[in-house]
Design a protein around this nucleic acid. Structure first.
Lengths: 348, 348
DNA sequence: CGGCTCATGGAAACCGGTGTCAATCATTCA
DNA sequence: TGAATGATTGACACCGGTTTCCATGAGCCG
């Protein structure tokens, strides 16, 4: 084990604001001003206080500060997203942005179908007096939850595939484009009989992605017959069933686009159950680009969303007021997914 | 959207302990006693106070309470585990146990190789005055971190594959058995040339699992020649390389056991790159039973660990003192993994 | 019936910061 | 030079709980 740092132990006791005040020969209120970057402190005084802070290794107690501010230094991530990869990457992104800010991330999974959803969230947010809340789909699309957060006067940022809210409260992913790219890719490979397996209709992403796919096909002069437009549920099994249905058609598709990777796996499974060889007999394109997409056989062509960056941006929006950032400058460009071409979709 | 509950809005303001005291006609100290379940309150009084609490919907402020207790109501999960599935499941388990306790979960990924590891953790734990910390491997195996937590006088629970600490601080998984089961399974299928791809040597699990595998083979009279014992790194690529090495041997194995599923995928990839057909030409068994194990082709036989339960147990150990549970009664049975038999390993 | 212990409840200080508002200081204007 | 003006700073109450210490009433014994 290599050598590691660690604080000089500070005599076992944490320094308080009073200690700093004594050392710097000022009142605790002035120390508080320095901590909170108040502009009403003479530079000379500020420097003296800062020196005392550094010398004592003083770090203000978040609980005491929070009590006085009537707001904690905790950011809540409320999610009902079932994909572990999505969740962990987003947590990472949020933590990237939170680093050094003194804020911490509290995770709070939930179920939109639970009858106690609102009570749970209210309890969580209100009790902890959260600094802010970040929500990915699909809970980000639940207006009753948003209404609750507004009532509780808690800042929030929603991540979703369409702008449901003011820019400072949204990180928008352009899922239309992602699906459109997939469509163009398949058409360019020569496919004409291309099927679509959608996700849960209750997810906006499913609608937006589906539309992007259909629009792009149309652009290229390809039609999506109703029989090729299947409603899935974002699960492996729903993908499998959809594929069996599609492949039983008198004129089965030569390519299938699924709105997430789990369903793509289900499609591949079904194809093999029917004795097809992949990718020769069927091209498949997924959405999400899970790590395993690159690890399965054949490697899955998929649409990648920069989840971690999305988490980071969401957290930055939450931090903006604290940092005095102009909200207008915050209107980051829309998140654009990119198609990662691998070997599951080939020339027809 | 169906009807949902939600508190009756309580006139916009949260009730404080003073409000409760006024309504119940007692001092705030008495209310405090009721909240903290002090035995020195007459039953009649306690009931009256409880009634007032319920009527007002009073919930004590964790920040104020924490300030007075000099300890927050936050549980930290510190991890360097790269598998999203593992992390999310463990978070779920911890939250299962925390539900209703008033504690929240704060996540804190870290890197054991970072030169600032200890400083980071110290800052996190000390600043937040964490109620406790839960650590899965491999950070749970880092004694410098444990030493730090002891110095900070912060309760912790370690999850690991061997008992590194006192029972109240440990959730132990019996990885020896999991690997042994895999070995027996392969031998029972008729395999004799069985190879092992280990994980990072810095993970205890890799050592324990490897030993379990070797011991069980020996039990069955099968030997593991050095050329069949490959050091991997728990990554897809390391599994792939290991398999290429193994399959280039003059006498290649007919089965490969990898100490996690990612490497199993790498092995499968390598096999296909060499034109082998799975599972006919090579049996593969993994460890972890990631969700995708059941979704890839051929379905991966793998060893499953009840990660969520492990997280729950860890959190319960942390809560035990608060609940006045006898630490002796806490010595839950060791966690036993189970082999999930699928189709990636077949009769030779 | 007085004295004493035990169980309870209350007043006030404290946890470690922040807000309010008035006092102090340095400059500038008349 | 005195007063006005604006920049700095500090005293004190307060955030919402807990703990310490003391007072009070009840029950018990001689």
């Amino acid at each position: 084990m290599s050598e590691r740092d660690s604080q000089p132990a500070k005599s076992g006791k944490r320094a308080t604001i009073n200690d700093v005040a004594r050392v710097a020969q000022v009142s605790k209120k002035t120390v508080s001003r320095v901590i909170n970057q108040s502009p009403f402190v003479r530079e000379e005084t500020r420097a003296r206080v800062q020196e005392a802070i550094d010398e004592l290794g003083f770090v203000p107690d978040p609980q005491a500060r929070g009590l006085a501010f009537r707001r904690s230094f905790l950011v809540g991530m409320i999610y009902d997203q079932p994909s572990p990869t999505y969740v962990v990457n987003m947590q990472q992104g949020i933590l990237d942005a939170l680093k050094g800010s003194g804020l911490e991330l509290v995770v709070h999974p939930c179920s939109r179908t639970s009858p106690t959803l609102l009570k749970d969230i209210r309890g969580f947010v209100e009790r902890q007096r959260l600094f802010g809340v970040i929500m990915p789909p699909s809970v980000s699309e639940d207006e009753t939850v948003i209404e609750l957060l507004r009532e509780l006067d808690t800042p929030y940022v929603r991540i979703a595939s369409i702008a449901l809210d003011q820019p400072q409260n949204m990180v928008v992913t352009n899922d239309w484009i992602g699906a459109a790219e997939a469509a163009r890719h398949l058409v360019d490979l020569g496919h004409r009989r291309i099927a679509l397996v959608r996700g849960l209709a209750s997810f906006r992403s499913s609608v937006v992605r589906g539309q992007g796919f259909i629009d792009a096909l149309k652009e290229r002069g390809v039609d999506l017959p109703p029989a090729y437009d299947i409603q899935g549920a974002y699960t492996f099994d729903s993908g499998r069933e959809a594929a069996h249905a599609l492949l039983s058609l008198p004129e089965p598709p030569t390519a299938i686009f699924t709105l997430n990777d789990d369903m793509a796996l289900g499609v591949m499974q079904a194809a093999r159950e029917r004795g097809l060889e992949l990718p020769r007999d069927l091209s498949v394109v997924g959405y999400d680009d899970l790590p395993m997409a690159a690890h399965i056989w054949p490697n899955l062509t998929s649409v990648r969303l920069p989840i971690r960056d999305m988490g980071r941006m969401a957290a930055e929006k939450l931090l903006a007021p604290m940092r005095g950032v102009d909200p207008a400058r915050l209107q980051q460009p829309e998140i654009r997914p990119s198609l990662v071409v691998r070997r599951s979709a080939i020339q027809v």
